[in-house]
Design a protein around this nucleic acid. Structure first.
Length: 596
DNA sequence: GCCGTTTTCGGCCCGACTGTTTTCAGTCG
């Protein structure tokens, strides 16, 4: 979709323009390295920890300090931010049919073939491609045979199902199901090790496909088993060491089978990101080495050392490969391109799942949860938590059975009473209070002050413009009763974008007030998202990671929230849920009177 | 278009698989 007429104020919007520009360059036959540079800049913009639009206005020269953005692309960003369009993008868009870039998304079609379909068969968009496939035009072109035609028809039908990316939990579930199937619940002696890689392992907020690795010396039976797995809709590719299937859900799953001795190299390679791999290969080259999916080898100038009996310097584990490259080990979540050094060491004390010792956002049967106060407390205690905050919905969330002021007063008493029945865990009486459209809260100050903890969240009016949303959330942050801003943007992954507030401004105010900004761990939210976490940390804000528990299983979503935090560089000391009981109480007792 | 103790030009990761091909181009990750 051409975006060049929309105002450009967010990093995501800038990234979308650069990506679109990359498509257009590719379709007009530009140098492949220019195209790649544009793609790389787009990804860099998307993950940048600074607000590029603000930088473009205040200090445009600093744009070039972002990895992958040089003078040329910096100038385009300045143009986008100041005029709302990019003249090069507009010029190229005028040369290319508007529906053509969409063809690049069809599996099996790359820039070369799309260009030929456009120039030799007059294909303008997916509809005209379908026509040319049906009337035999495409089958008559050199390089396109009957199989290509059939595959393209399948690709179009698949795309028409509207299946794009998938939520992280879907990938997690399928990855574990298929790996269990392949190793026969751990009983298959030929399976020496299994892992999932790709964006699932990097804990991106959505995934395009699932990558599975199996260490085994007997690949073919595993390929058979994989391709015959329940729920396989179509086998997309199948070789001796690699196969791809599509499930009925539309999710594509790739399997690689390899010797155990090369597992680390393959895991590294297939975990990516692509940019991280490129950076590591560059590091290898600097040291006279060459890195591929089979290992790290001395570079003798010849290709494919693994096929020529060259002994690998490192291959069995990721750790030994990083060590041999004299590069600090990077956990998968940080293998993206951020800032000016993509191979910079991870922050000391990077948050881990085991650091989380309390849950501060949960619901009971009083509003829309499935557990009673006691059941919730027992479930939290069973997870080893020292504190659970009961934060049912406030009165405006009528659809979630939000509590009236009167019901909340009785609920507070019920929570206090439950403390005696569930010893060994602190049960906080709280509320998830709606932040109304104007930034006011859904309960009186008097009632809010009677609570141990207040999570304030936006639930409605999620299409406000950025300025209004920023003012709305700032007002909530500045309310002295508020402790946490819950799912600050209200986005739902793959469904709605949510608010686009000025995260840096919110984080600055939150830092001044001691308010934490939440990473809601539910896989449909992951809100704040990774790039927002980076921005918030840079401004000094504290972060909360909460499961927004409605059902007992929701505690398991913590891994996704922690993954998002780690992607944002979150350390243990900046996460309120990693505080011990005393420190947490100290935070809740902080001075709320000082002005920001 | 970006990048640089091989730095202002000349590189830019590389191997598996597919389909259409008789030796390889294109796509994908």
């Amino acid at each position: 979709m051409p975006l060049y007429i929309l105002p450009v104020s967010s990093n995501e919007a800038i990234a979308a323009h650069l990506s679109h520009l990359g498509d257009l360059l590719e379709l007009t036959g530009a140098n492949v390295f220019r195209v790649n540079a544009m793609r790389r800049a787009s990804r860099s913009a998307e993950g940048a920890s600074v607000d590029l639009a603000r930088l473009a206005e205040s200090e445009p020269k600093a744009l070039s300090s972002v990895d992958g953005i040089g003078e040329g692309i910096a100038a385009r960003i300045v143009e986008l931010v100041t005029t709302g369009k990019c003249s090069e993008e507009a010029k190229l868009a005028a040369q290319v049919p508007a529906g053509l870039p969409a063809l690049l998304q069809l599996p099996g079609l790359g820039p070369k073939k799309v260009r030929r379909l456009w120039q030799e068969a007059g294909v303008q968009d997916i509809a005209s491609l379908a026509t040319r496939l049906d009337d035999g035009t495409v089958a008559g072109m050199t390089g396109f045979g009957a199989k290509s035609v059939a595959n393209l028809k399948d690709s179009i039908a698949f795309q028409a199902r509207g299946i794009g990316r998938f939520r992280l939990d879907v990938g997690w579930r399928e990855a574990h199901r298929l790996l269990r199937l392949l190793d026969d619940q751990g009983e298959n002696p030929s399976v020496l090790r299994t892992a999932f890689a790709g964006s699932l392992r990097r804990s991106r907020d959505s995934i395009g496909d699932v990558d599975l690795l199996v260490a085994s010396d007997e690949g073919l039976p595993l390929m058979d088993r994989f391709c015959a797995a329940p729920d396989v809709e179509r086998i997309l590719a199948r070789g001796d060491t690699k196969a791809s299937i599509r499930l009925h859900s539309g999710l594509q799953v790739d399997l690689r089978v390899l010797p155990l001795a090369q597992f680390g190299a393959a895991l590294l390679y297939f975990t990516g990101s692509k940019e991280h791999n490129v950076a590591l290969r560059g590091r290898a080259q600097d040291r006279g080495l060459t890195l591929n999916e089979y290992g790290l080898f001395p570079d003798d100038g010849e290709a494919a050392p693994h096929t020529r009996g060259v002994k690998a310097i490192a291959a069995a584990t990721e750790e030994e490969i990083y060590a041999a490259l004299e590069t600090p080990f990077l956990p998968p979540e940080l293998r993206e391109v951020y800032g000016d050094d993509p191979l910079a060491a991870p922050p000391a004390g990077l948050l881990e799942l085991s650091h989380i010792v309390c849950e501060l956002h949960s619901h009971t049967t009083a509003s829309d949860g499935a557990m009673s106060i006691e059941e919730l407390a027992h479930a939290a205690k069973a997870r080893g938590f020292h504190t659970i905050a009961v934060t049912d919905h406030s009165k405006s969330s009528a659809i979630a059975n939000g509590l009236s002021e009167e019901r909340l007063r009785a609920h507070i008493d019920a929570i206090h009473a439950a403390r005696a029945r569930v010893p060994g865990i602190q049960i906080l009486a709280g509320s998830e209070v709606d932040i109304l459209a104007d930034g006011s809260l859904d309960y009186s100050d008097d009632l809010l002050n009677a609570l141990d903890i207040v999570v304030a969240s936006p639930h409605t009016s999620l299409k406000q413009d950025a300025g209004t949303a920023t003012r709305r959330l700032l007002r909530a942050i500045e309310h002295p009763a508020v402790d946490i801003i819950g799912h600050p943007t209200g986005r739902v992954i793959l469904e709605r974008p949510g608010l686009e507030p000025d995260i840096e401004a919110l984080a600055k105010a939150a830092a001044a007030r001691g308010v934490a900004l939440e990473i809601n761990a539910h896989p449909s939210r992951l809100d704040l998202r990774d790039a927002h976490v980076r921005m918030a940390l840079a401004q000094g804000a504290m972060i909360a990671i909460d499961c927004d528990v409605h059902h007992e299983d929701d505690f398991d979503n913590l891994r996704f929230g922690v993954g998002t935090g780690r992607r944002g560089g979150l350390t243990k000391d900046r996460c309120v849920n990693a505080m011990g009981a005393d420190a947490l109480q100290g935070w809740l007792d902080r001075d709320r009177t000082h002005a920001s």
